[in-house]
Design a protein around this nucleic acid. Structure first.
Length: 385
DNA sequence: TAGGATT
């Protein structure tokens, strides 16, 4: 059965660093070791096909990175959908959380938060819960489990076809493994207050522990994508565009992501009716232009010219706009040297032609606040201008 | 009855 995630509600407990802070630069403790609790971030819910390079490019647009790593499966090399970014400056880590947490990339909404110090005690602390009453919300479930420790994430799976009815199964990740153990002891086989049936609580399987068949399937898909490009879900991708006009994801408790940065242009009435719908004609006409006077796809990918950005626009705006369409390798806002304000345009590099074409077809003419964007493949003529 | 949260 097809399922989807209800949400990735944040817990009330802060995941932030503790201890004394310095205004700038790495924090050095008395024993000489660097304390990266204010610079090291964990990034979750990354798109499956995002590469290390794209990952670095996205987070490097915020500030200087000390190190970053997209975590991969040791055997298949596939992304595990999360990674770490350690900034040089704690202020940039803070900025990355404020501007990139909640960013929509393809079908995912990424989560950016401080990484907890690595420790054996925080591993294998994820629980699988089944037999939950269908009426139990994510909050209800957290309330039930929170007596056993600090909850890092929780989710309830829902049926897609019945528009979000709980399937009665979910996950609870505790901060510490021993907290998860206590929750199993206390809740497995117990009936929640008012429930007719007892719930089952056990350690979740590690998602990377796949069956041989699943591994083969994954390897096959990986190989197939090398030749045919990523699988496309155009309807899904397009359905995300009107959401640009709706502001931050209400399921994500991050601060209003881009509102401040964009003169609240995401928050006001960016009418979906003004949004140019997918047009096969548009795509065909662009396809016919390929190779005529475009700069792509040399090396890094297809370069896209974005015109009529506001003076306040920054790189995260471009990630926000183009990320949902596919692999973005680089974004650049062109700024005035003296004022550091955006000069009204920028560039985006996308790996795949069809994803770039789709982004252009969708975003050219898109109203961003009180501005109408002009989006096209970068041409040699524009390059000279 | 199945998510990609610790390099």
């Amino acid at each position: 059965m097809v399922t989807q995630i209800i949400s990735t509600m944040e817990t009330q407990v802060s995941n932030g660093p503790s201890g004394t802070s310095l205004p700038n630069g790495p924090v050095i403790s008395s024993n000489g070791a660097t304390d990266d609790s204010k610079t090291n971030l964990i990034v979750n819910y990354l798109p499956q096909n995002m590469t290390q390079e794209e990952f670095k490019s996205l987070f490097g647009s915020i500030g200087e990175i000390e190190s970053c790593k997209l975590v991969r499966d040791k055997i298949t090399g596939q992304s595990l959908g999360y990674g770490f970014v350690n900034y040089v400056d704690p202020n940039d880590a803070d900025k990355a959380i404020n501007t990139l947490n909640g960013l929509k990339l393809q079908t995912k909404t990424i989560k950016v938060s401080y990484a907890r110090p690595s420790s054996a005690s925080i591993r294998d602390a994820n629980l699988y819960v089944s037999g939950l009453p269908k009426t139990m919300s994510q909050k209800d479930m957290e309330q039930l489990f929170s007596q056993y420790g600090r909850i890092i994430t929780s989710r309830i799976l829902v049926d897609q076809v019945t528009a979000g009815i709980s399937r009665g199964v979910g996950f609870i990740r505790f901060d510490k493994r021993n907290e998860a153990e206590e929750a199993i002891k206390g809740l497995n086989g117990q009936k929640p207050l008012g429930a007719a049936e007892p719930i089952t609580v056990k350690f979740a399987n590690n998602p990377s522990q796949k069956t041989g068949q699943a591994l083969l399937t994954q390897l096959y898909q990986t190989a197939a994508r090398r030749y045919t490009g990523p699988l496309h879900h155009q309807t899904q991708r397009f359905s995300m565009i009107p959401s640009l006009g709706k502001g931050p994801d209400p399921n994500n408790s991050s601060k209003p992501i881009l509102d401040n940065l964009l003169n609240a242009s995401y928050g006001v009435k960016s009418s979906p009716t003004l949004f140019p719908r997918f047009s096969p004609i548009t795509i065909d006409s662009m396809t016919s232009l390929a190779g005529v006077n475009l700069t792509g796809p040399t090396g890094a990918g297809w370069c896209i010219f974005v015109y009529n950005l506001s003076p306040e626009a920054d790189e995260s705006v471009l990630w926000q706009l183009f990320g949902p369409f596919g692999a973005v390798t680089n974004v650049k806002v062109i700024r005035d040297f003296t004022t550091n304000k955006c000069k009204g345009f920028g560039f985006v590099t996308m790996t795949n032609y069809d994803e770039a074409a789709m982004a252009i077809a969708s975003l050219n003419g898109y109203r961003l606040g009180d501005r109408v964007l002009q989006v096209s493949f970068k041409t040699s003529k524009q390059h000279k201008a």
